[in-house]
Amino acid sequence: MSLANLIDPITAEGGATRFSGLDNWMQGRTLYGGASALIAYLAAARAFPDLPPLRAGQVAFVAPTGPEVELRREIVRQGRNVAQVRSEIWCEGKCTLTAFWLFGTAREPNAVHPPAPVENWPGAPEEQEPAMKGKGPAFIQNNFEILRAQEMRGPGDPVVRRWARLTDREGLDPVSELILLGDVLPPGAMRAMERQGPISSINWSFNLLDTEPTTRDGWWLSENASQHADAGYSSERLRLWNADGKQVLDGMQCVAVFG
């Protein structure tokens, strides 16, 4: 019932909302980032069900989010083709997450440029061995299956690539699934750290390349790659591909690197 505990309390009315049984989704003293982003997205999508498909999201993880929250959402602007919606999570009178969602109808294309094929294809998920077994935060162990998707282990190039899927996807539409899963891996900067220490996502911006993404058996190839790390922060590129190697999400993230 872990996934139901996460999504069922979210209503079209928003306002005061209490979640229970979320121990499996915690990352330290806050909800895992993908889980809190999903709450903010569903708060907007359920409040305004007639919106066009989601195209992009900008999420700021402001402070720890707990089980008792206030959900706020509003349409900032709705034009002929594009609607822009803000949603926020508040805890104890303070904003802990703010998100900006861009919804847009499809138009006759005036430019067509498909994403480049995935480089260094790791092979199908059915061919890979488990990774992070018994390692990593509890929310990964309780909610995700992770498979190896690169030969490198330990320090090296600041790239982390894994096959990932949710153990429970019942009741999730494909876009919600990507939001919940898109932030699952540790940052690529982890491989460049000189010593072990805590890491924390500060924000996450992404574009959906497919508004109706599909894959095989729930498997998505996830990659986090540090583009630059210094002064306690890492700029990361986050990408997701389906099981056939088609890219479905392109994103960026700022990560705080402590220690």
Rank of each mutant, 00 (worst) to 15 (best):
D244Q: 13
G171I: 01
G245V: 00
V184W: 09
R161T: 04
P187G: 01
L3D: 04
N120D: 15
L31Y: 10
G21N: 04
P109R: 02
W219M: 00
L31T: 05
A189L: 03
T98F: 09
R153E: 13
Q150Y: 04
R195F: 09
P9D: 03
S201Q: 08
E74V: 10
F144G: 03
V255W: 10
T167K: 15
M190L: 15
R29G: 10
A256C: 05
Q78R: 15
Y41H: 14
M132S: 12
Q253C: 09
V159N: 04
P114Q: 13
D8N: 12
Y41D: 06
M252R: 11
T98K: 08
A40S: 11
L166G: 09
L221N: 02
N81G: 10
P52S: 07
L185I: 01
W241C: 01
I89Q: 01
N224W: 11
G182W: 00
W101V: 04
L181M: 09
G34F: 11
P125C: 02
D173E: 14
Y41A: 09
I7C: 08
E177A: 12
H228I: 11
G34H: 07
S222G: 06
L180K: 04
E170G: 08
Y233K: 12
S235I: 14
R161H: 00
A60T: 10
F206W: 08
R80I: 07
R162M: 06
L54S: 07
A116P: 02
W219K: 00
N24V: 10
A229Y: 00
A16C: 07
V175M: 01
V85A: 03
G123T: 02
P186D: 00
